[in-house]
Amino acid sequence: MANSATLTTDTKSQWGGGKSPFSISYGKLMMWIFLLSDAFTFSSLLVSYGFVRYSFSGNLETPWPSPDHVFNHFPFLHGLHLPLMFVSLMTFILIFSSVTMVLAVEAGHRMAKKEVAKYMFLTIIGGASFLGCQAWEWSQFITGSEAGKVIADGSIFHGATLSMNEYGPVAFADLFFIVTGFHGMHVFSGVVLNIIIFIQVLNGTFEKRGHYEMVEKVGLYWHFVDLVWVFVFTFYYLI
């Protein structure tokens, strides 16, 4: 009896109860479901960005600005026209922090506490650097250029708020704040989660538990944040 049951494991008893048909723990499965719903949220934000931008192509009065002329700054290199350079740096930082995260997961499978701690720490540093870069990017965007834009009453307006900006249509700044802000919020929560897990790794919580699955769960979330950045980078800065 026992033999025939094990023989059919891969087919019929897969859904027969008593085990996960996905060979995955409940927590990880729910993390995947959450990430799917989050993917929908980000998709709708990016699709609305696409909608607004595409519908502005015939508007000659306030055309959609080229990212070339808006995001062309780099720290300590004031006044130089360097489009895409700073945001590429941010992309590299985030990709690299994703690599250290997956290395932490890999070390967790081997129950190597010290390595997990080391890679988790590097991931936190990467995430914090990314947030710092984004803060700088936002402050550049909000401060604006020295030239600014002459508005209806004759005064000059610099930078951007939610209701006005010097770069083009109001929606341009609004969508920039919402999309990168929502992503930055995710990075921030990811860093907080990583710090909590890092402390638990140091305390030996997972060593006692016998597995490092929590590292895998925050890892899934962290890679998702990296994944979203790939698309924010593509749609906001490249296209």
């Binding site: 085990k19 996960s20 060979s23 995955i24 723990s25 990880k28 890999e106 499978h109 006692k208 538990r209 016998g210 597995h211 699955e213």
Partner: peptide, 11 residues
């Protein structure tokens, strides 16, 4: 601290 066994696919 009983060691838990989790279902997971191998790397």
């Amino acid at each position: 601290h009983t060691v838990e066994h989790l279902e997971h696919t191998e790397s």
